[in-house]
Simulated scan of single mutants.
Amino acid sequence: MRFKKLFPSSLALVATLSLAALASAAVPTVVILGTGGTIQSKGDTRMTRYDYRAGRFDITEIIDLIPQVKDLANLEAEQYTNIGSPSMTPEVWKGLVEKINEKALRSDVSGFVITHGTNTLEETAFFLHLTVQTDKPVVVVGAQRPSTSISADGPMNFYNAVQVAASPDARGKGVFICMNQQINSAREGTKTSAYKVEAFQSRDLGFLGVVDPDGVHFLRAPVRRHTYLSEFDISDISEFPRIDVIPSFADASGDIVDFVVGAGAKGLVLAGHGAGGASPAQGDAFKAAISKGVPVIASSRTGSGRVIESSRMTESGIVAGDNLLPHKARILLMLAVASGKTDREELKRIFDQY
């Protein structure tokens, strides 16, 4: 009789505990790695929008400013570094990739959020896009206004980034740039405004998706190789070669090309006019560089559109950079050269596939 009286309540207790355990297990874990930038900055006044010091908040302080974000996921936060984005280097990127690769092996981790300054955010994002060895989402997020500013954009950007990192639909799509409720691929997303909160666009191709009040919605997916499909293994790279970007303009001299090659550049990217064009003097200098074993990639300074191989490029040995922006073509060339892939046909394949 006593058993009959106790059994229903005991069963209810077990059921409650089981449901609680299931609910806890169902909550995703998102790893937050802070690197600094405007999103972690403080201004002297609330009106400060551009004259401030980046990286004055710790990442845990940022999370505490947005308590609602803890309802989205179990957050595991670490201040990886705390610098302005112009101070980023390939060595910092490599350490970040190694940390992500290590933590991605854990079954409880669903995704990653990287806070970052916006000036070189797209370069870090693209490096991760080419080297992170996981299909789990990696979201790079920043802010255009310091955290202490009136109408700071960082808190909502961060909240949305965690939403994307925790979303099962984000898996397998590579590295994202998430700001202003817009999700860009790391390959195409680029900063297009110095101060406005709608700072990143993908120009020709558009956003991958959006973060609306009803959640994360993807509209397309990347088709080029990235992350877990990439051939670039960061553990095989001990040092990064110098790769320089050379701008072209009317009557540009070839002297700067000669100088950087003499200074030790192992590869060059032309930020060319139109469809990757150079001045005659630069053309001669690039031919001389190629004859010395220095590969040259042609990209465009226009900011959109593809650079395709022309007869002039074929004759000189220059490789077309497709639609990669010059500073992103530099990163892909840097990884190719660091991996020992400098043959022209091999570089053509790489720029076609990535």
Rank of each mutant, 00 (worst) to 15 (best):
Leu205Thr: 15
Ile59Tyr: 11
Gly317His: 06
Ile308Thr: 15
Ile100Leu: 08
Arg203Ala: 14
Ile350Lys: 02
Asp71Glu: 15
Val31Phe: 02
Ser149Leu: 10
Asp322Ser: 15
Ile234Val: 15
Gly189Tyr: 04
Val138Asn: 07
Met313Gln: 14
Ala252Val: 11
Ala161Trp: 02
Asp251Cys: 00
Ser18Ile: 08
Ala250Cys: 08
Asp64Ser: 15
Glu102Pro: 03
Asn184Tyr: 00
Ala166Gln: 11
Ser185His: 07
Ala263His: 05
Ala25Ser: 14
Gly277Glu: 12
Thr120Arg: 10
Asn160Pro: 06
Asn323Cys: 09
Gly209Pro: 00
Asp44Leu: 14
Ile63Ser: 00
Ser248Lys: 01
Val162Gly: 01
Phe200Ile: 06
Leu335Arg: 06
Asn160Ser: 05
Lys348Pro: 04
Gly276Pro: 05
Thr190Leu: 08
Gln182Arg: 13
Val337Gln: 10
Gly267Glu: 10
Phe127Pro: 04
Ser230Trp: 10
Ala23Gly: 07
Asp244Gly: 01
Gly276Glu: 08
Arg46Asp: 07
Trp93Val: 02
Asp58Lys: 09
Val14Cys: 14
Thr45Glu: 09
Arg49Cys: 06
Thr134Met: 05
Ser41Phe: 01
Leu72Asn: 03
Ile256Met: 10
Phe207Gln: 12
Val245Asp: 04
Asp236Lys: 15
Val164Ile: 05
